[in-house]
Simulated assay, not measured.
Amino acid sequence: MHIIHCPYCGPREEVEFKYGGQAHITRPENPEALDDAQWADILFMRDNPKGVFAERWMHAAGCRRWFNALRHTVSHKILATYRMGEAPPVLETLEEAPR
């Protein structure tokens, strides 16, 4: 079982959380000017890196607040969590998989 650190409530078991997809997605400034193909790209295309990835999570069984997490997609280890609106923390070794 993974322990996830909620930035509001502290460390909790992973079953208390819900995944919310990729973090830091920029919405279009002029949405009415987009065609269907551009909308499809905005709504459905997401990054899928091998390495550190910024994600949104919600503490569903706790405070019910959304927050962001940096998770390594190979090891599934959550390296850091931070509140919505905050900049992601700088990690020294983003390329190397955590052990």
Rank of each mutant, 00 (worst) to 15 (best):
E13G: 01
R27W: 15
I25L: 15
R71K: 08
A33M: 12
C63P: 02
E14L: 08
P28S: 06
A60F: 13
E29S: 13
Y8R: 04
R46G: 05
A80S: 04
P11K: 01
L43W: 14
A61V: 03
D36Y: 12
R56P: 00
A23F: 14
E13K: 01
E32W: 11
M58W: 03
I25C: 06
R46E: 08
E32G: 04
E29N: 12
D36R: 10
M45V: 15
A23Y: 13
D36A: 15
P49F: 13
C63M: 04
W66G: 00
A54R: 10
R12H: 15
N68P: 05
C9E: 14
D36K: 12
A37C: 02
N30M: 11
E55F: 01
E16D: 14
P31T: 09
T26H: 10
E29C: 04
I42H: 10
G10T: 05
I78R: 02
R64L: 06
E29L: 14
L70Q: 14
A23P: 08
Q38Y: 09
K50R: 12
G21H: 09
R71G: 00
V74E: 13
Q38H: 05
E16L: 02
A37L: 11
D41I: 13
P49V: 11
E32L: 11
N30R: 08
W66T: 01
D47R: 11
D47L: 15
P11M: 03
R46W: 08
N48S: 14
D41K: 07
P28Q: 07
M58Q: 11
A37V: 13
T26V: 13
G85R: 03
Y82E: 03
A60S: 06
R83V: 12
L79S: 02
P49L: 12
